[in-house]
């Protein structure tokens, strides 16, 4: 198999097979919290996509060329979270300068991304070596494929969920299930559907 096919398969597997929200459980907080409206869900998804790809792009060289030679790999969590926090700031500034309308649309979701575990989770997976991680990326290509697939997976799932939830509001749900419980049950059904992708690209 040539390199390009491996790259594509890695994207598909982190997008569909091990979906970031429904099977790896990253970013549930924002998934549940921001999926009330389609528009805000899409804004959040786009912002997260930005930050995940950038963070993966920056953190891989930091790990390989700075932390490993300096034998400071145990510091990875602290370094990554600082990288992510400053990246979010930079992205905020850049977006504000070049596209004020997008900045307005992203609004408060931009700073919230720092604490979205999808970002830190992907970065950790990309550099981790060990069986306990779903993805232990072997090289830069796989790391980037994981970042791309994960972030697109997050975007798609949060928008789908927002669409379903706007329909659910009109539905006649039992009183106790109103709001969050029924949203979680919906997520469970989505997770069941995504289990159908298991085996692709294996």
């Amino acid at each position: 198999m040539n390199y390009f096919v491996t790259f594509l398969l890695a994207i598909v597997s982190s997008f569909l097979v091990d979906n970031v929200v429904l099977s790896r459980f990253y970013g549930i907080c924002s998934f549940v919290g921001v999926s009330n409206r389609v528009k805000s869900a899409a804004s959040m998804g786009i912002a997260v996509t930005f930050v995940i790809v950038l963070a993966a792009l920056v953190s891989w060289p930091i790990y390989v060329f700075i932390l490993v030679p300096a034998e400071l790999t145990f510091m990875d969590t602290i370094v990554y979270i600082l990288v992510i926090a400053s990246l979010v700031q930079v992205v905020g500034l850049v977006v504000k300068k070049f596209s004020p309308s997008l900045y307005k649309a992203l609004g408060i979701y931009l700073p919230l991304i720092t604490t979205n575990c999808a970002v830190l989770g992907v970065v950790q997976e990309n550099t981790a070596k060990g069986a306990s991680y779903a993805y232990a990326a072997a090289d830069f290509g796989t790391a980037m494929a994981n970042a791309l697939g994960t972030s697109v997976g997050f975007l798609v799932v949060i928008v789908l969920m927002a669409c379903i939830r706007t329909r659910l509001e009109a539905a006649n749900t039992p009183k106790a299930f109103k709001g969050l419980p029924i949203a979680l049950i919906t997520a469970a059904l989505m997770a069941l559907a995504f289990m159908g992708f298991q085996g692709i690209g294996a």
């Binding site: 429904l22 099977s23 459980f25 039992p174 009183k175 106790a176 299930f177 109103k178 709001g179 969050l180 419980p181 029924i182 949203a183 979680l184 049950i185 997520a187 469970a188 059904l189 997770a191 069941l192 289990m195």
Partner: peptide, 25 residues
């Protein structure tokens, strides 16, 4: 075995929250 899968986690949390909401109601 569904409850060992990711979907089971969502269902369990959702149902527990619904039970708490029902008791509170």
């Amino acid at each position: 075995s569904l409850f060992s899968n990711p979907a089971g986690g969502f269902i369990t949390l959702g149902v527990i929250m619904a039970i708490i909401a029902a008791v509170n109601n």
